[in-house]
Design a protein around this nucleic acid. Sequence first.
DNA 1: ACCTGAACACCGTTCAAGT
DNA 2: ACCTGAACACCGTTCAAGT
Lengths: 223, 223
Amino acid sequence: MGPMSSPSSPARGRPPRLDRARTLQTALDLLDRSGLDALTMRRLADAMDVQAGALYRYFATKQDLLTAMAERMMDGVADAAAEADSGDWSERLSALARAMRAALLARRDGARVFAGTYATGANTLAFADAVAGVMRAAGFPDDDAARALYTVANFTVGHTLEEQAALQLGNGGPADPGVLADAVAAGTYPHLEAGLPALTSTDFTRLFEFGLDLLIEGLRARR
Amino acid sequence: MGPMSSPSSPARGRPPRLDRARTLQTALDLLDRSGLDALTMRRLADAMDVQAGALYRYFATKQDLLTAMAERMMDGVADAAAEADSGDWSERLSALARAMRAALLARRDGARVFAGTYATGANTLAFADAVAGVMRAAGFPDDDAARALYTVANFTVGHTLEEQAALQLGNGGPADPGVLADAVAAGTYPHLEAGLPALTSTDFTRLFEFGLDLLIEGLRARR
DNA sequence: ACCTGAACACCGTTCAAGT
DNA sequence: ACCTGAACACCGTTCAAGT
């Protein structure tokens, strides 16, 4: 802890207007307000009354910032297993999957941010460990526990990506429900026509629960 | 078919150097060579010996081009059901899911392109109709057939997104297998440590089949 | 009709220089 | 140590003008 130590040393100059935590929080706020496409380093710098170049002292690249954002979104998601402690393995697994979906839905374009990064921080690893732990405790072999983790996570990300895309398209975007209905009506897609009510339904929670239930019943059959 | 008709009218001027089909093909070739991040309108124009602005006569926006690319990737995927005609519904459903994964894997960043667009063209709708058709023929109610379609598609996209991300990270990217292993070793994630062989395995086909099997067993239990 | 040339309003990132 | 200012090498998109 000599005189050459890092940010923790006595502040000699002006207190820094920037730091990792405040930058991250401002980025998440900006994401919610403006969406991922409008989240640029310059606009983020503007929101912090700083020049764009200054951000690079705390995040080496924009991708690094996005990864940190994804990691922060997963904060507390692993705790969902403990909260469903009374339930059996399937209840606890469901609670974890629902918590992940909720965490991604909680922020605008959350799924796109998460899918576009490779988060290996404490929150993401804690979530992964919790899922694998639930499966191992239920008696699944170690490699099946790992594979079940991937399957649940990939399904959840895939579903939420679609869900958030559909949500923003509903707001006068290029493909609101009517577009799909028109496209189906124009061609000859008898099976889609039959399922049109469910296809254009905006009850994404029910859709998510359907898929989650399939995965859990599949796991039950394997156990 | 008067004198004011469209491209099909007798070519009065020079033959156009550009058209939708050739632009699409060049874009897909460029995607394979350079990846999605390097696929810019200017580089695409360069590859066609044309100025960037000229592309906008055939695609209103870059997003439109990407949507057309996603749609072309799905060409022929719906035929996978017919090729597994001898099998029962689960074989046919598997064949469709495998064909979709293969179609996305066939092009660099294919899953990212597909996930980033909202394709409602003939190929995508034919695929969706084929999945719903298999489910309805198997005796599933119409709304369950529609929901199963979403679940299988969302899982497949989510899986392939992860798979292609991992593949390009293996090439000296920021998060090759070692990064995950190190991160796991640094923290205390006992359940991940137990599943490390499966977690760092690059046998994505086996991982995909595991998830697909869970979905199919889940559907079987529901039927 | 089809494409060029040039512009507009931006990007991510780097880095010498100031304080 | 921390940030500014300015630059570099790009973007997507538009549109008058040429042929």
